[in-house]
Design a protein around this nucleic acid. Sequence first.
DNA 1: GAGGCGTGGCT
DNA 2: TAGCCAAGCCT
Length: 304
Amino acid sequence: MTGPSRAAAAPPAGEVIVDWYATAARDLPWRTPGVDPWAVLVSEVMLQQTPVARVEPVWRSWMARWPAPADLAAAPPAEVIRAWGKLGYPRRALRLREAAAAIAERHGGVVPDDVAALEALPGIGAYTARAVACFGYGQRQPVVDTNVRRVVARLVHGRAEAGNARATDLADIAALAPEDDARAVRFSVAVMELGALVCIAGTPRCAACPVRDRCAWRLAGYPAHDGPRRRVQQFAGTDRQVRGRLLDVLRAADAPVTAAALATTWDDAVQRSRCLDSLLTDGLVEQTADGLFRLPTGDVDQVT
DNA sequence: GAGGCGTGGCT
DNA sequence: TAGCCAAGCCT
């Protein structure tokens, strides 16, 4: 059928999402055109499980202090842990420093541009490797994070929530990407942004969604999630809370502290000891020759 | 492959 | 209020 009553075919969802991004994207410093891939890598590691608002100020000071991988690799671990501040999961800070050392030593100080080499770096997994290749090097890459999996689950599969990561995730998102390479690169960040700002986990803002007219979940009447509830992580009383308190004391201390000082953080001595041991094992804490505790100095004559 | 691993804002 | 949730990685 032809004629003016027939609307032109709607543009593909991927194209619509790229155009939406041009008008709706947040202005984030690591998205500055021409930004150094190292700066992108640092941002991506900081953003693992951590909100943008908390990352931004830390990222700024971090990049000013350690603008290149070799700078970070040369820094004492204690300073790196302190600079990480309260971003959480501080093992990420140590792994980022280790990744910086690997880049400096094995890659001539240049962040590798291929996914396999990136994934071989400490703390860099499937998501972060592709994010660096795509956002840092402008490569056409499918980039799948929790936002992308949620958008695909709703828009394509008509499900309220994404299940666990699947082998088909990369193909799912690649199928939506625009043909033009430059637009496909923007699409990768645009889908994440859509998931972060509009197609959010709690109450999705469908009225603001550029592809609501073709969303399978919306067209199916918003069927509820039918799988098992994702169990929410406990925090109060866990080792994670205790480790956090121990590290909080050590970050604030300007000299090695006694075991007695650490004992004020948590009453249960068994749990406290277990957590201190795990921090020593992780390399987040070291013990001095006289039995005191501090953040790791990186000195070669340290006693552990 | 399920569970461990921080922290704090939001509803 | 008390979960829920946030650009994952590693074992």
